[in-house]
């Protein structure tokens, strides 16, 4: 129920931000749209820990700030490599293990890897990620495992981590 309310609240906020016209007619249409979307989402049974991960709200912003700093550092590193005349790259594949329990955590980890320039996750299967790194040292930094630990903490920050099969009641 909390998830449904959060979804509805988020949709209302997005409507208000994007609309810009606050007349009774438009606001009513917005409320009706939000109601229909939430009703369809509930009927499709997609309002779960994956689509509305409110249990991660506690550490969410802290993680984004840390990830933002990492992205800036990685961007500067890749920009240096692109501009240096000798093109100092040494592409390497890394096979990493994930320590997250749920699929959502693993997806957040893989997407964080891809979002950081210099590393791209190529395949995610059975809790193992195949990562393409632009240089060996970049991949070595990643396999030191700090991002992995942070995503795991993000995953378990609220309710207990869901089982991989999901937590459909």
């Amino acid at each position: 129920m909390l998830r449904v309310l959060s979804l509805a609240g988020g949709l209302v906020v997005i409507w208000l931000l994007l609309s810009g016209h606050y007349t009774p007619l438009i606001n009513t249409l917005g409320l009706v749209s939000v109601g229909v979307v939430v009703a369809i989402a509930v009927r499709m049974d997609v309002v779960d820990h994956e689509s509305v991960p409110i249990h991660m709200r506690g550490r969410f912003f802290g993680y984004w700030i840390w990830l933002g700093a990492e992205i800036v550092k990685a961007n500067i590193d890749v920009a240096k490599r692109v501009w240096s005349p000798s093109l100092p790259i040494s592409p390497t594949l890394f096979r990493l293990k994930t320590s997250q329990a749920g699929e959502l955590g693993q997806v957040i980890y893989a997407n964080s890897i891809t979002l950081t320039p210099g590393t791209v996750s190529v395949s995610l299967e059975d809790g193992e990620i195949l990562v393409h790194a632009i240089a060996r040292e970049v991949g070595d930094d990643l396999s030191a495992g700090e991002m992995d630990r942070r995503v795991t903490r993000l995953e378990v920050s609220g309710i207990p981590a869901p089982t991989p099969e999901g937590e459909r009641e």
Partner: peptide, 17 residues
């Protein structure tokens, strides 16, 4: 950059920062 995998890093650079 020499191949499609390493070009993804450059594309990621324009998409993020």
């Amino acid at each position: 950059l020499p191949d499609v995998y390493s070009r993804m890093h450059a594309a990621g650079m324009t998409d993020t920062l």
